[in-house]
Design a protein around this nucleic acid. Structure first.
Lengths: 117, 117
DNA sequence: CAGATAATGAGAACGGTTACAATTTGGTAT
DNA sequence: ATACCAAATTGTAACCGTTCTCATTATCTG
């Protein structure tokens, strides 16, 4: 299952992943896909993000640590993104406001070169 | 309805808002709340974000332009946040990657001073 | 091989959201 | 006032992604 996620260059929904596995001939139930994805997400082996419509998308990321994504709204292709400055900014800002247990998410979206037009 | 949203200092779900309006004695249908919220969101009169569980939360923001939020995971209280540097970073990064029609979201979450402990 | 344990998966249930059709509301012309 | 029309509103049913249930199947262990 992780292989199928890695094979895809973008984020997949649980149902897309299920369909993909089925097409490959694997007899796997949708419930199992959801269960395993949840475990993988809980253990930070895959990244999760939410579509505008509320759907959950999953991806096996190359980068191990904390990072963010630049994603094409049309084709779904994804690049990983990092910036120590921005990390520091987010953290110090929250700290100044008295927050603890700080985390953050950053999503940059747009139309990639291929999809533009 | 906008008043009810403004009265709340944090984000409200559509259903919470509906309940609030009902408690105030207004006879309003859930469908209407959803409809009007959608219109308000489409016209950028309210901000929308998605819970981890996929639920949509709405807020009438003080700041008019583009901005982000620092939010307490426990009590839901929200502060508005801006940073020209981060805006520029996100935009130039996407542009360098060949992206157009660029947008981004940043959410910083944690436990606020009151809720910490 | 037997028995216990965990993983699996088809289908039901669930919760937030949207679509639909009927009703109400508000305005305008008669 | 009254009749008429268009837009807004509303309860309910449908929808869709996700989670739960629990019978079945696979995997360990001795």
């Amino acid at each position: 299952m992780l292989e199928a996620l890695e094979a895809s260059d973008g984020f997949l929904s649980a149902q897309q992943l299920h369909a993909t596995l089925r097409e490959q001939g694997q007899r796997v139930g949708l419930a199992t896909v959801y269960n395993r994805l949840r475990i993988l997400a809980d253990t930070h082996q895959v990244d999760v993000l939410r579509t505008e419509s509320g759907e959950a998308l999953y991806r096996r990321c190359g980068a191990q640590g904390h990072h963010h994504h630049l994603r094409c709204r049309r084709c779904g292709s994804v690049q990983e993104v990092e910036s120590a400055e921005v990390e520091a900014w987010a953290h110090s800002l929250a700290k100044k406001a008295g927050f603890s247990d700080i985390s953050h998410t950053i999503e940059i979206t747009g139309l990639c070169e291929k999809c533009h037009g």
